[in-house]
């Protein structure tokens, strides 16, 4: 079963490697992964879709939370959330089916981003399941080429972000003693 995880992590060198490494190390298969900066440029938001036995979902979250660069790991699989994905499809289509292809794209809320005598490039956003259907439909019209973005998700519940406060260092304490 696919688990959707939303991670808020520090935008530090190696942070992505730590997340992907942890998943492969523990034997979880990544279905898709997207990452980009947040409003705070020092943080990134990552959405991971991962193939996990439902009984292990909590374990994955706990392991993610142990990564020092991860500020928050949230399991969105069953909590209120919106998941979207973007797909770009290039479909080669004969003259007589062009209109039908456009009609289908419209049904899926797609947008034509390129048109040529050979066919179209169409962009569709939606639920990953919906995109699967769209791809199936396009395939019935001819040869297609597909690039998917991977899922991005946002939780619809307010989840309090708990950050750890600074901890005084032993070295720093010694300094204060020296000053006194």
């Amino acid at each position: 079963m696919l688990q959707i995880i939303s991670l808020l992590l520090e935008n530090k060198p190696g942070a992505l490697m730590r997340v992907t490494g942890l998943l492969s190390q523990r034997g979880y298969n990544i279905e898709s992964l997207t990452v980009a900066r947040t409003l705070d440029p020092e943080l990134s938001r990552m959405t991971i879709a991962v193939e996990v036995d439902p009984g292990l979902r909590q374990q994955v979250i706990k392991q993610m939370n142990k990564l020092i660069n991860v500020l928050q790991a949230t399991d969105l699989t069953e909590s209120p959330a919106v998941t979207r994905e973007l797909v770009l499809v290039r479909v080669r289509t004969a003259q007589q089916t062009r209109a039908a292809v456009l009609k289908e794209a419209e049904i899926f809320g797609g947008r034509v981003v390129d048109s040529s005598t050979e066919g179209f490039a169409i962009e569709v956003t939606g639920d990953p399941e919906k995109l699967n259907e769209f791809i199936d439909v396009m395939r019935s019209y001819g040869e297609i080429e597909v690039t998917r973005s991977g899922a991005v998700a946002i939780g619809l519940e307010n989840k309090k972000l708990r950050l750890q406060p600074p901890v005084p260092t032993r070295a720093g304490n010694e300094l204060e003693e020296n000053v006194q």
Binding site: L71, Q164, P168, T169, G172, L175
Partner: peptide, 12 residues
């Protein structure tokens, strides 16, 4: 001098 460690994502 380092007086504090700030690792906001490191939960102890």
């Amino acid at each position: 001098h380092v007086t504090a460690i700030h690792l906001p994502g490191y939960k102890v």
